[in-house]
Design a protein around this nucleic acid. Sequence first.
DNA 1: GGCGATGATATGCGGGAGATATCGGCGGGC
DNA 2: GCCCGCCGATATCTCCCGCATATCATCGCC
Lengths: 312, 312
Amino acid sequence: MEARHLRYALALADHQHFGRAAAALGIAQPPLSQQIAALERELGARLFDRTARGVFPTAAGEAFLVRARQALAEMAAAVSDAGRAARGETGRLRLGFIGSALLELLPSLLNRFARGHPDVRLGLQEMSTCRSAAALLAGELDVAVGRGAPRGAGAEDLVSVTVGRDRLVAVVGAAHPFAGQAEVSVEQLRGEHLIVAPADEEPLVAARLAALLGEGADSPARTGGITEARDVHTIIGLASCGIGVGLGPACMRAAARRGTWVCEVSPRVELPELVMSFRARDRSPVLAAFLDTTREVCPGVGGQLGDRRVGR
Amino acid sequence: MEARHLRYALALADHQHFGRAAAALGIAQPPLSQQIAALERELGARLFDRTARGVFPTAAGEAFLVRARQALAEMAAAVSDAGRAARGETGRLRLGFIGSALLELLPSLLNRFARGHPDVRLGLQEMSTCRSAAALLAGELDVAVGRGAPRGAGAEDLVSVTVGRDRLVAVVGAAHPFAGQAEVSVEQLRGEHLIVAPADEEPLVAARLAALLGEGADSPARTGGITEARDVHTIIGLASCGIGVGLGPACMRAAARRGTWVCEVSPRVELPELVMSFRARDRSPVLAAFLDTTREVCPGVGGQLGDRRVGR
DNA sequence: GGCGATGATATGCGGGAGATATCGGCGGGC
DNA sequence: GCCCGCCGATATCTCCCGCATATCATCGCC
C-alpha cells in the first residue's frame, strides 16, 4: 500500500464520484477505479459502495478514511518538520559563555535569535573560556563565547570568530584612593592588590595581564597580591568591598553598581577579543541560523566566516 | 512522496548502512541510494550524514523520522481498522426489542455477541414491534426484535427470521380465583377483564387474541373489559394488583414475581413468533456478525437466512 | 424500451523503480 | 606510507506498473 492509495480513497470519498474524483486528482477515471480496486483487494474488504446515487464509503471505508487522513497529515508534517529543522527553525542550541558576554553581546544576539527562531530550545550556561572549549569538543555545547580563540588539543577542530573587543579597565570600591580618578597607570596598578580572572580558566587573559604588568606579576617582587575571581560580577563585588583593584573588560561598566568606581587604564590595553567558537564539522542548521544572526548583529563576522555555508 | 520513501528512510536509520538496509528491504543498494536521494531532493534537505562510521540522520532527518514512523503506524492502523470493521468487530449496532425478548432470547444472544465483539458499541432500546419496524426503515435501528414479521409499507425492504415461539399464558394476582389453577380455558378468559398488549403497537398479537376470544373481543358483548399495557412487566404488575387477567407469552414465567400466578391456557395457543428483522439492503458487517451469532444461538435461523452473506 | 450517465474492462505506452556493473573515496592495516 | 577493502554514488539497462484512450456493461429514467 502506498500513499497514493490513501490520497485516491480520500478524493473518492470527498467527491462521491469516480469521474470527478479522478479529475480532481488530475488522472483519468479508469486508473482511479483500478487503484481503488487494488486497495480493496489488498485490504480484503470493500471500502466503497457504488450506488446509483453516488459512491459512499462502507463501514470499513469510514474506518479506513479516518486513519488515512491522519496518515497523510503525518506525512505532510514530516515534510514540514524536516524543512523547519533543516532551516534551523527547530532544534536545540547549547551555548556556553563567559559572564561578561552577557553584558553587551548576548542580550541583543539572543533576543534577535529567539525572536526569529521561537521553536529552538536554547540551553545557556555561563562558564569559563577553557571549560566552554572543552565542552564544545566533548559535544556538550554547540557554541562557546569566550576571550581569545581556544588553543591546544582539539583546537583545530574548532572555528572561532571575533565578535567583540574590549579594553582593560580597573574597578575599585568608593573608598579606594583611585575612586574619582578618570584613569590609572599601569605603574600604579603594579603596587595594588589585583583581582583578576583565574589563570587556569582564562589563560589568554592572564597572559595578557602578565605581559602588561611585567613577567613577575604574581611573584613576590610585586607589591600587592593577587585574588582570582571567576567572573566579572565577582570581580566587581570583591573590588567594591575594598579587597583590591579589579581588572576586566570595559563592558564591566555596564555592571558597575553604586559604591564602585571604574577607571580607564593608561596606556590603553586591549584584552583578548571576545570570540565565538563552534565545531568546524558541525553541520547543524540551528548553528548555521545562529551564525547568520551573529553575522547580522556583529559587523565583521561575515568576513571572517566568508561564504561558509554551515548546515543544509 | 510515497510511503515507500518513509519505509526506506526508516530502514536506513535502523541499519545505519545502505547495503544492510537495502538487504532488509529486499532490494539492492543502488535503488535505496536513489530513493533516499530523491526524498532529500524533494524535501530540499539532507536527511542523513554519510560518514565513515555509518549513516546517521541529521537534525532534519530525526524530525522527519519521528513523523514517518507515526505516518506508517497510521497506515498500518488503517489496514487493521478497515479489516476489523469489515469483519464486524468494530462499529455500532442499534437494537430495538420488545420487553419479553429480554426474558429469554437477548440475554444469551447479547452476551455471546458482546464477548465475541467487544469493540462493537451496542445501542439497546426497548420498543414495540410497530415502532421498531418504523425505526428500522427510518435507519434509526439496525435490528429489531418483535412479535410477528412486520407488514405494511416498506415491509418488503425488511428481512425477518423467526427466533423464538411462545404459547399464550395467563397471569393473575394471588387473590384471583384462577390462582392455583394449572390452566384456564379460553371460555373462562372471555368473562374476565383482560390486560393485553396495545392493539396499535402490537397488531399481530392483538389480532391473534381477537381471533381466539371471538371477533367481539373488545365489543360490549364480552363480559369483561380490556386494559392495554405496553410491556410484559406492566402486564404482570397490573395483574398482580388484581386489575384483571394478564395475557402474554409463556416466557413471562421468568418474570413472574411473588404475588402472581401463571396459568396455561387451554387449548394451547401460539402467539405470533418472536421475529428478528433487519433492512434487506443493509450490508453492515456488524449486522452480518450479529446474524452469525444469532445463527449460533437460535437453531433454525441458519436455514431461514440460507447462505445470505450479509456484509463484506 | 431507448438513452444517457457511470463505473468496469481492455489494451497500449511511457516513466520510474530496481537490478547489474562499475566508479570514487576514505580508513585501516601490514 | 602505501595498498587493499569496504561503502556509497553513478551509469545503464530492463521490466513492471501506473496512466491514457477506447470500449463495454449496467442501471435509472424519461
